[in-house]
Amino acid sequence: MAERKVLVADDEIHIVHVVTIKLRNNGYEVISAENGDDAFALACEEKPDIIVTDFQMPGMTGVELVRKLRQNETTKDIPVIMLTARGFAVEDKEKEELEISELLSKPFSPKELLRSIEDILYQRKVMQNK
């Protein structure tokens, strides 16, 4: 079975680093970006299975990145998990509209993040097989 690919976008290098290690230890291929623009370019090029993005990043914010992903034919169906250090950063309506699969508050648990990624990818696989 091919390695599942995760794109991690966060301007905090320590967060990118720890998520990368956690996911690699669990059999994922990880690509990373430090800002929204780079993340979008990488998503178009690499077509990851799932994207983990921070809410607040220099330049394009996490929400703007997801909106742009949804408007692009090649990236519109990629599931997204958003990390946020701000309470109530994304309204429920916006979360639904942008089809954000999961919203995780910082500080977050890498274990919990891994579980969320696995759940989302599993559900997606089930849906595709139907």
Partner: peptide, 18 residues
């Protein structure tokens, strides 16, 4: 303040869990 405090806290929490 919430964002700035939570950012290093997120690293501390994640790395210690690892």
């Amino acid at each position: 303040v919430s964002h700035e405090l939570k950012t290093p806290l997120a690293s501390i929490s994640a790395y210690s869990e690892m």
